[in-house]
Amino acid sequence: MKAIRSTTRTGTRTGTRTGGGTGPGARTSGTKAAPPRRTDPRRPGTDPAARHRERERLPRYWFANRLLLTLSGQRPVHWMLGHTLGAAYDQLTALAPQTPLRPAPPGRRAPVVRHCDEFRPRPGVIEAFARIASGDRLRALAFRLERGTDLRWRCSAVELGGAAVPHGAAARE
């Protein structure tokens, strides 16, 4: 058997251990090694909370969450004023009073964005679609984002569950 010396970061010896090798059956103590933690700092992206925070920074998820809060009645429509263009704001004012994404009956979870993906037809444009879960219901939400000259993303169109509100519908009422 060969002796293996271990050292700390400062270079001082902390002790020795003996072992016959480093293979799968080799142990240095009487206990099994713990499996690697999901939050291992050497493996980036393994922390679920960090992945969630990273996801929420994407424009498509950020807007999907804001649209969900507006269309579920949890936030007023004017909350989206600086984040929408004229036609999309008109669509929201027509959809929001119906609260089409309102929370499920009491005792159930509030609606959440389950998944959101995007298609980029050209630079500065994102066409996004999201699946919204509320209890046992699943709804579709589609929206278009356009990047302005100030480099801010703004929503320019909204569709919910295939029922689009025609442009200018709110203005005609």
Rank of each mutant, 00 (worst) to 15 (best):
R42V: 06
W62I: 00
Q74D: 11
A96K: 07
A133P: 00
R55G: 07
M1R: 15
A163N: 14
S6V: 15
E173Y: 02
A171F: 02
R51G: 01
E173R: 08
P59L: 07
Y61S: 01
L145P: 06
S29I: 09
F129S: 09
E56A: 15
L58W: 13
H52V: 13
H167Y: 03
Q98K: 11
G124L: 00
P36D: 09
L68R: 10
F143M: 02
R109C: 05
A33H: 10
W62F: 14
E159K: 06
M1D: 12
R13E: 13
R38S: 14
F63A: 13
T46H: 13
A94K: 05
G21E: 00
G135L: 03
G20I: 10
T149C: 03
S72E: 02
A164D: 01
G82V: 11
A142I: 00
V165D: 01
A88P: 02
G25Y: 10
D150I: 07
E173P: 03
E118H: 05
T22V: 07
T10K: 08
A50S: 14
T93F: 13
P105Q: 08
P106M: 04
R109M: 12
R147S: 02
T12S: 11
V113W: 01
V113P: 06
G19A: 09
R122C: 04
T14R: 14
I4A: 11
R5K: 12
R60N: 10
S29E: 12
H52P: 00
T12Y: 08
G168N: 01
N65C: 08
D90Y: 03
W79N: 08
P121M: 00
Q74S: 08
M1I: 12
E118G: 00
R147H: 01
R120G: 03
L141F: 05
A26L: 05
F129V: 04
A104I: 08
A50H: 14
P48Q: 06
P121K: 00
E54P: 00
L101Y: 03
